[in-house]
Design a protein around this nucleic acid. Structure first.
Lengths: 337, 337
DNA sequence: CTGTTAGCGCCTTCAG
DNA sequence: CTGAAGGCGCTAACAG
């Protein structure tokens, strides 16, 4: 059944469409009885004005940009959203938020988005595009920028340098005299095909080698993303006959899991063992976690600003760059006695 | 300057509008040269297809609901967003996110939203509506539900019972033998006219009295919302000649501030002093904070489900109820020796 | 106060 | 392959 239109209502109420329009727009120039009749017809038919038509007719066009991301529940993502909002508040765009519930649904949703033509631009956070998906977007004339670890050439993309970040973390630990340094992170590649963990691990591995210390296989603990898995992995580490004196967790959330495991084991941070995370989400400052900052909010700001340029100046300006990951020393790392 | 239309492009390229339409929709049935010419004209004029017209013409209507909230940066709000998303993922609505940057702008934005007619429904989080704003929304035929402490009669609204929550927290502390209990919270009413702090304080105050202990004025510390202010207030408390043995912070974020101050003062939680928060945001489980749970995610779910009912069944069903606030005991409270 | 008439910008036949 | 015409559902002048 095609939904009822203003014309159906008019016929039903025995009035002209102009009157119906007046009623739904609360114009004064309608007699109470007529209004009454029209409103009844509206209720009867379950009529709901078509916003699209209304907008078109009144010549106003609402500009939307979309943000699409996999986990609204991840701090590293919501914190970027803040940056996005900051930029958008100035611009005259509405923000449409798409949250991918599972990897499989991403493609579906992208197709929908392209068909809808609701948004003019799309900010794609932590999601890898296939070539097919690129052309899909191009064809739909939807401009997009990605926040992503691995920037593909020719597409607007910003992201942190995770290898450098891994190095920064590892050098900090090494500089404190630690050699028995463990790595706790996501298995790579993860479900979304991401290599974040791999890169941070690479930074760790190379730095260790460069300093002449060979990372021990039993110190590398990989698992699904999340605090609890990290907690388990850390417990395993602590139970080793020769446990590490420091842990580099690939994310702050996982670092919090490490902290929990260490506390449960009755050990103390940073006296017994040092922990460094990665991301510098807001929580970290609250709990005093030493970490590597990757400028989350700023990445949201930059990316959205770039998208807006694309939309309005229609040429990629100077590619925007994020600062390199930066060490933030707080209270969970300490010089090895 | 009114933006160029498909007709301008057609004239410029010396073709019919049908051809232009075909080009922008990637139809096969266009000769390469013609397409070339059209695309040039498009670029030249900076033409961008009008999505509204396109949608209308192709008979598709996108349903949007909006969520409007004051601080995207507040955990208590973003966690509700998750619940919203969960419900929305099933339904066929897009989510438009409005972030209020300042109290003054709220009214403006609301007016815009009503004029736009972009969204059919609105979920209003932690924002008080004036009667004028109610009728504004009614007139625009925008259904709405509020997540709010104080439900006004006749409008769809759900929210936690803060007085009960305050009682729960206070009773817990009292039950542990504490009498010297401080309250750290927002000044009331806050900038947005909210009485959240007042209500939680009321729960605290009444419970104290009911147990025959008179709250001491110097134990009541009010200030702006945030971790750092709470930290300062707590330091003041600790410097009192007769400091409290327990603190009830009106939010988990503020409780974290208390924890920081206590740590800085060289005291230990929960041995020297107990702390209980309010909200049970995710961070709290990470840091082991005892708190009062107010079912954030669930409130988002319920509210959005309600809104969807309003939109599609057009009558308020049984008002949805949130569970009462509930004690979550973790590691920051302890029986008074 | 109310019905009628033009469009809004685009897509989709339908002839050519 | 391409141009012209009709219509999507609604609003905004107009006449009555």
């Amino acid at each position: 059944m095609t939904p009822p239109t203003i014309r159906d209502v008019a016929r039903h109420a025995g009035v002209g469409i102009g009157t119906v329009s007046r009623v739904i727009n609360n114009s004064e120039r309608v007699s109470p009885e007529t209004r009454q009749r029209v409103q009844e017809a509206i209720r009867l038919l379950g009529f709901r004005p078509n916003k699209t038509a209304s907008q078109l007719s009144r010549g106003m066009q609402i500009r939307n940009v979309g943000v699409i991301l996999p986990f609204l529940t991840f701090h590293a993502f919501t914190e970027r959203l803040r940056g996005v909002q900051i930029v958008l508040n100035e611009a005259n765009y509405e923000l449409v938020l798409y949250n991918i519930s599972s990897p499989e649904r991403f493609d579906e949703q992208l197709v929908e988005i392209c068909q809808n033509k609701l948004v003019e631009g799309l900010l794609i956070i932590a999601l890898n595009l296939t070539p097919a998906q690129h052309t899909l977007l191009e064809d739909a004339a939807i401009k997009y920028v990605c926040i992503n670890d691995h920037c593909q050439p020719g597409i607007a993309c910003i992201g942190p340098d995770n290898v450098v970040g891994g190095r920064v973390a590892t050098e900090h630990l090494l500089g404190l005299g630690h050699h028995k340094i463990a790595y706790v992170g996501d298995s790579f590649p993860d479900n979304y095909g991401f290599l974040t963990s791999y890169d941070r691990y690479t930074g760790y591995y190379e730095t260790m080698l460069a300093h002449g210390v060979l990372p021990r296989p039993e110190y590398i603990r990989l698992g699904e993303h999340g605090k609890d898995v990290a907690r388990l992995l850390t417990t395993e580490l602590l139970n080793l006959s020769d446990p590490p004196t420091a842990i580099f967790a690939m994310s702050d959330i996982q670092a919090l899991g490490c902290l929990a495991a260490i506390r449960e084991a009755g050990r103390h941070v940073p006296n017994d063992i040092s922990v460094i995370g990665f991301d510098d989400i807001e929580i970290s400052s609250y709990v005093g976690l030493t970490t590597v900052r990757q400028f989350l909010e700023e990445s949201g700001r930059l990316a959205m600003r770039w998208l807006l340029w694309l939309l309005n100046d229609s040429h990629i300006g100077t590619p925007l760059q994020l600062p390199l990951p930066e060490l933030v020393v707080r209270e969970t790392t300490r010089r090895l006695p």
